[in-house]
Write a protein that binds this DNA or RNA. Structure first.
Length: 412
RNA sequence: CGGGGCGUAGUGUAAUGGUAGCACGAGUCCUUUGGGAGGAUUUAAUCCGAGUUCGAAUCUCGGCGCCCCGACCA
């Protein structure tokens, strides 16, 4: 991609109202743009990162046996009434009316619609277990959106739902998803901690949150420095010692990036989603649900991976692999840059090529740090006089001089 | 939903009742080119409505919008 054609344009200043560091960099580097409080557009750079995160999550969900589907957003009132969530859900539903005055809730989560879908076709224990997931926009009438993408009113969420004939089977699948979640966050460059949580209005017997420790986190968690115990602070209450190994617990600020729920039969009972067991008697289907908010995850990656100058994207989710800068406008610099650009494209390396003639060297260098692509290649008169170009990693200071014809042999 | 703050060119800001100014951006020309270059020139703003006043960006009321703290959440 030639940067002269890129729709995203970096900004010199961000609004003073912006507090969260991830919000500031995502706005300055023009990954996203705000439409209204808690409502954002994704611009080309932001959408590239989003797509990479989405693919990581999709791969891991397929890895636990989830089949991908796509459900509606306009969910009829009658389904919400069945579970009493038309009035009891918090944050409140966005409610809309059609021309016949029929009411719909814009899906904030999809337990009702998926339970309706599966109750029509699961009849026997032989139909179980299975799991379905989707990646789709959710709508939540939040009291207060915050921190750019950290809490929005419209956001993409991966929601996985699982269906079982026994608590034991749910438990084993739940643990499988837990492991997949750790892998997802690790692949996104994050260290996550799984803590016991309050199931809230989604409900169910127990739930676990996946937290990423961050100075600017809104949540507080208690973790045991010795064993793996961790808990949401509210849930833990005044407990000071680890219930598992009696060590003194540590309190840390964190951001929630995922939440998994062992729902049990809350929805299947309310909506009469039953199956017949071997002996011929009927039971409510045992369910689990598992969510990850993608824009928040993207934002948390920035919260954890940045320096003074800008974002430092982990390779796995970076918008491009290489940022190639033609630092000056001379014919020789352009010629060498074009050649490297073509060579790398042939090797299927994703390159953002800064070919902008009107920008000075300083502006280009500042932009490249802000955008945060893992590798930087600088082509300039200075290095060409030594028959070299400069290769540098975003998170390292070391600059290597490489012969232009050998760039294509590097491993990015 | 409770509490607080704010709204001035595309962006960031100044002007506290008396000439709407500055910087960046954008356009044109010239000179520049290794960490947001310099000169010349052009462009462009008081959120909306009502009120007070000789006079309102500034004070009052209403609306709209945004941000922050609390509660809630992926």
């Amino acid at each position: 991609m030639k940067q002269s054609k890129l729709f995203s344009r970096t900004k010199k200043q961000a609004s003073k109202e912006i507090q969260a560091i991830s919000h500031k960099f995502l706005i300055k580097a023009d990954f996203i743009s705000q439409v209204s409080s808690g409502i954002y557009n994704f611009l080309p750079l932001g959408w590239r990162v989003y797509k990479k995160i989405e693919n990581i999550i999709r791969e891991e969900m397929q890895g636990v046996g989830g089949e991908e589907i796509f459900m509606c957003s306009l969910i009829p009132q009658r389904l919400w009434v069945e579970t009493k969530r038309w009035t009891e859900i918090d944050p409140p539903l966005f409610k809309v009316k059609d021309r016949h005055k029929k009411m719909f809730g814009l899906g904030p989560t999809h337990e009702e619609i998926i339970t309706d879908l599966i109750r029509k076709r699961v009849k026997s224990y032989k139909d179980l277990p299975f799991s379905l997931f989707q990646i789709q926009n959710k709508f939540r009438n939040e009291m207060r959106p915050t921190g750019g993408l950290l809490r929005t009113r419209e956001f993409m969420m991966k929601d996985l739902y699982s269906f079982h004939s026994s608590e034991k089977d749910l438990k084993s699948f739940y643990e499988k998803v837990k492991k997949a979640y750790f892998r997802i966050f690790k692949r996104c460059g994050l260290k996550s901690i799984c803590v016991e949580a309050d199931p809230g209005t989604i409900g169910g017997k127990s739930s676990h949150e996946f937290m990423v420790v961050s100075k600017d986190g809104e949540d507080k968690i208690v973790i045991c420095p010795k064993c793996n115990f961790g808990s949401n602070l509210e849930k833990a209450g005044k407990v000071k010692k680890c219930p598992e190994c009696r060590s003194i617990l540590k309190i840390q600020k964190a951001i929630e990036v995922g939440h998994i729920f062992a729902l049990g039969t809350k929805y299947s009972e309310a909506m009469k989603a039953n199956f017949t067991d071997k002996s011929g008697s009927s039971h409510p289907i045992i369910m689990g649900c598992y969510g990850i908010g993608l824009p928040r995850l993207l934002s948390v990656i920035v919260e954890v991976n940045h320096d003074q100058e800008g974002i430092v994207w982990p390779k796995s989710v970076a918008p491009f692999d290489v940022h190639l800068l033609a630092l000056e406008n001379s014919n020789q610099v352009k010629k060498v840059s074009e050649k490297i650009y073509k060579d790398l494209q042939k090797s299927n390396i994703k390159v953002l090529y800064d070919d902008r003639e009107e920008k000075t060297a300083g502006q280009k260098l500042i932009d490249t740090d802000l955008i945060g692509i893992p590798w930087r290649i600088v082509v300039s008169e200075r290095s060409l006089s030594k028959n070299c170009v400069e290769v540098k990693k975003r998170d390292k200071k070391k600059v290597s001089l490489i012969c232009p014809s050998k760039v294509k042999n590097l491993k990015f």
